[in-house]
Design a protein around this nucleic acid. Sequence first.
RNA 1: GCCGGGUUGGCGGAACGGCAGACGCGAUGGUCUCAAACACCAUUGUCCGAAAGGGCGUGUGGGUUCGAAUCCCACACCCGGCACCA
Length: 828
Amino acid sequence: MSETVASSEVRYDAHAVEEKWLPVWERLDAFRADDASVVAGEKPKFYGLTMFPYPSGDLHMGHAEVMALHDVLCRYKKFRGFEVLNPMGWDSFGLPAENAAIKNDEHPATYTYANIETQFASFKKYGLSFDWSRRLHTSDPEYYHWTQWLFLKLREQGLAYRKNSPVNWCPNDQTVLANEQVLADGTCERCGAEVTKKELTQWYFKTTAYAQELYDSLDDLQDTWIPKVVNAQRNWIGRSEGAHVTFDIEGHDPVAVFTTRPDTLWGATFMVVAADAKLAAELVSDEQRQALEDYLVDVRKASDIDRLSTERPKTGVFLGVHATNPVNGERIPVWASDYVLADYGTGAIMAVPAHDQRDLDFARVMDLPVRRVVDTGEENPEESGVATNGNGSYVNSGPLDGLTDKTEGIRRAIELLEADGHGTGTVNFRLRDWLLSRQRYWGAPIPVIHCPVDGEVAVPEDQLPVELPELRGADLKPKGTSPLGAASEWVNVSCPTCGGPATRDTDTMDTFVDSSWYFFRYLSPHDGTQAFDPALAKAWGPVDFYLGGSEHAVLHLLYARFFTKAMRDMGLIDWDEPFSAYLSQGTVINNGHKMSKSLGNGVALGAQLDEYGVDAVRLTLVFASPPEDNIDWADVSPAGSAKFLQRAWRLAGDVTSAPGTDAAGGDVALRKVTHKTVHEAAQLLDTYRFNVVVARTMELVNATRKAIDSGCGPEDPAVREAAETVAILLSLVAPYTAEEMWERLGHQPSVAQAAWPTVDPALLVEDAVTAVVQIQGKVRGRLEVSPDISEADLESVALADPAVVKAIDGRPVRKVIVRAPKLVNIVV
RNA sequence: GCCGGGUUGGCGGAACGGCAGACGCGAUGGUCUCAAACACCAUUGUCCGAAAGGGCGUGUGGGUUCGAAUCCCACACCCGGCACCA
């Protein structure tokens, strides 16, 4: 860059500077986290975590943004005296490597570890403050050894189990998926294919065992996690309060339903069972059996699009049996319909058509009775066709008649049900157990052996890890069952219990299992004897700040929370939540759209780094917007960032005072700007407003430039103080430029090891402030006054000001509000 | 439909209930140059005005307050989550 610029301006070459400092930083190894000082409690700890990448190709813009943002905070915490743990690794199991291996007839590890080395080199060049001594890869046997160990621990607790159930199946990836991996439109989160259902025996983690706690402790995260993620988790877990009510059925065992409105039980005029639930087949009468089967054929034919439509007319079939309403003894018919879901609640509902729109729609189609039991003052639903669900007075509801409050009605109804044994108050969750087995190769094998005599047998701990057999190329072709099944010498083993012939489980674990505990492994990544050192977990945990993508709002974050709680209950750790604070960064887009090959609007990180240098790209990403907002690359200016960095750097060259010069006698005006900037920057950094920190640093650069050119001059000690402050603030975002400045200012590297500037409170006090004089709340004058002016003095000065007198224009002053020293408001 | 977040110049965005638009991008004018690029300087919410100065301005409509981008109520629109979840 610089050699092509014919200019009198002095500038530095961004690329030469990158080459220069990388080996120096390597030698200094300044970001290695010291366990001892944290275990001993000598220093406060800061565990900063940012989501580790999947090794597909090189790093891209998205990585650049999240890493740049995270680095700002970690470097700042180090300046503030924290012992910082900022590790990085790779989430290196997963399908892209497997698909590449099939295509190129090679082993997934080839693709995986080649990409890891590429990304590692890019990370280094990007100048991040990672402690690389803790680097890990989830696909290493040394890592998945402990993934398997944790699986077995969870299984011992009954938190990992196998069951046969209808599951989500991705026809493209040829594997099952967890609910969390199916998007709202019924497509695969990974590849976008339309997900279908299959009935299969699969492994599950019992996330539902922690549904209540996962939901409740969101309250504790409310203030430190970004709201949309807390909200997404609440919605996903889907807690709803209500009651189970038991209905006697003629000729069958009683059936329980879940309802959130037990107070409307007197208006239940029929019952509906999910058509595809076992219950429907059990209840149906012989005469109606054929009708139910015909209906089921129709239901299964309906496409997902139809199923997802809420406008679809209700359908169903009478099951030929009747139930008894427990509160009024009424005999009500039992129907089957697909508008009731088999896997939510009990798969059966009591229908209260007057107060539930879905039930009303169904009642109208099937000509079933509608009875209003809450009079809300609106038109009777029986006539209007619009169900009411607000507060109103209860009618036709026996003991509830006369009540007018819904909450009270629900409370009383539950009391009555519990008193005579017809039901109980209960809480229902939408969350399901996590389906964790996958029919693919490149993942951690499930460490279980199936024996015809002993059934499921855990692989003994001393035989872990169960390493993947060597398979490559065509052997990995998806065929609906796990490729591991083809490795017969691997599959066929003797039973650990009886020694007889047995077979290994051939499924591998969802890669989200690997990432559910990686933040523990960073604590002691090379420990061959345990998953992590409990003493280090106690010292470093939990993670103080976690930055990552919002696509993991439910997926990874929910799974990691589940793991943490389960591990706590196993006595492995003593904290409840893995991530004390969570922020998700926005996406880097281009021209209003997500970058994509099909749109041709991709911006290659490498090309940007080559053109503008690492620091300019990092600065651009941090300055563009608040961290959680999207950045449109078309709206930002890396060239402008590079220009600013040159301007900042030039300050260091202009300083003529010697290193170590006491700033005390320096220009007070500039010193005030410097100290105020440091003071505000600290507050802004503590609240993650990194873009504003950059703006404040720019202001300090501008003020320093002005002081050098047309103020106190380059030899003033205040100029040195300001330039050194700029270097320190800039080192959070632009480490190369900052290091250059630091060196030019006569200091030893590294600026990252410099002391955070001490703010002198005396310099935060202004000696003159601008007081605003308002008349009727509109600004009509400005006064330069002392910051400690009295209210009375300020009022009299304001009222005497000629501009104010003119604006008052002789009108009588009715009231004067004085907020010394900043404001006077005159009401006339 | 329910839940969460948002709406500020041409653009990205700043603003403890007290000077709206910091900082930057872009644009315009200028300096340098044979010229351009780079760099540097100046101007830049909008309307009226030659200027001084003034009117209007933070999605819309109300409210609280001496004073509202900021607090309250209602509405519109945008983004995200959930959704025939009983």
